[in-house]
Write a protein that binds this DNA or RNA. Structure first.
Lengths: 209, 209
DNA sequence: GTGGTAACTTACCCAGGAGTCATATCCCTG
DNA sequence: CAGGGATATGACTCCTGGGTAAGTTACCAC
């Protein structure tokens, strides 16, 4: 391919690169993705990426901010439903399945164990996780209060368990791409029933069942 | 340091290298650990490691097998207590806290997201995870049967949740090194109570409470 | 049409980490 | 005390992947 413009405006090219990069980072992780990989997948050359994003970390930051915005919007939306406990849990799961269905790689892009521990991308992720943490801790703390346990360390550990459970369900779903969001929500309801017994009607109502 | 033997027998040197490497891999991950790092930490030179273990992957394999054996012995031991459900859960957690207390890095060595996806080390890990998976699936399946849910996909998802919860509790504990195994087991019991209500005496008995 | 600018690429540099080779020292054996 | 094997290392090579310098092409304004 010879040099010279192909008539693609910078904004358009940037958007295209980000889309390709989100997918690459999400599917292969930050460490498993080279800038050359992204350039190849986008059908352009490496220096163009450096020209537009400055560094691999710069590109990663843009991707992460985009993905975090998508997920955050969903988390916040379901937190505003005013539900508590299991009802809020299932509402959040259901919303996340729907939000991720068209772009499942977004999840692993944000929860990427190979992401670097410093740089702008890390800042963006840390900021997002801080907000997410506060949101989750709030919900868990309320649940704990209702159950009569106000120990902050207990709350912290319970929060870790809640997040892990949430991630496990999302990850399981991502590993079973033939399952629709609706079916997955039903499955979660069944699992809740298995563990907690008959569910309160409010829980079902939270996902229109 | 000049060349020439220091009078350390191969077997001793190998053991020393493995110990240092387990710690390095466990604390910084496979990808975050260079062979030179291990050599430095062990106070020897890089070629000696290649001489004794053939490759980074070869060293990793030995470390992983050692750590997996430690964890596996513990999992199997608690599976033989004959307990079911929550009782088995708390017994397994308690056993793991005790097993990990003297060498907490073993955990992350086995559950290392930066470990390679091929090679002998990977084989060893895959084999271990297969056994662990079967053990966990068995326990979860039994619980599901008791609750009247025999759907294999539901069991699979439930198993994923169970493993995630287990890992979350262990990880939380690893992040709070001032907490003793005993205290952590008590905390887990409190969390169980918070979620499931008053616990069956059998559950308490499983950890001598 | 001609200069300037935005869009692009080829060909390179460089750091870091896996892996190797030749060599040096020690100790044990005969 | 000479030879050989075990224990060790300094100084390499090679490759991958982030990052850059310099130049090439197309379009637009005047």
């Amino acid at each position: 391919m010879s040099a010279g413009t192909k008539g693609v405006a910078r904004a358009d090219r940037e958007a295209q690169i980000v889309e390709v990069a989100c997918r690459a980072f999400g599917e292969n992780g930050y460490a498993g993705t080279s800038v050359a990989d992204v350039a190849d997948a986008a059908g352009i050359s490496k220096p163009l990426i450096y020209n537009y994003f400055g560094s691999k970390d710069g590109l990663h930051e843009v991707c992460v901010r985009y993905a975090a915005d998508v997920l955050w919007a969903e988390f916040e939306r379901s937190s505003r439903t005013g539900t508590v406990g299991l009802a809020r849990a299932i509402a959040t799961l259901d919303g996340m399945f729907r939000a991720l269905a068209p772009q499942p790689w977004m999840w692993r892009l944000v929860f990427d164990p190979t992401a670097p521990a410093d740089g702008a991308g890390h800042e963006a992720l840390a900021d997002y996780e801080k907000r997410l943490f506060a949101l989750g801790e709030e919900g868990v703390a309320e649940l704990m209060r209702l159950a009569g346990n106000e120990d902050p360390e207990d709350t912290s550990a319970m929060h870790a368990v809640w997040e892990a459970m949430f991630r496990a369900l999302v990850t399981w779903w991502l590993d079973h791409p033939e399952v629709t969001p609706d079916e997955m929500t039903d499955r979660c309801l069944r699992l809740f029933t298995t563990v907690f017994g008959e569910l309160d009607p409010q829980v079902l109502a939270a996902v229109d069942r």
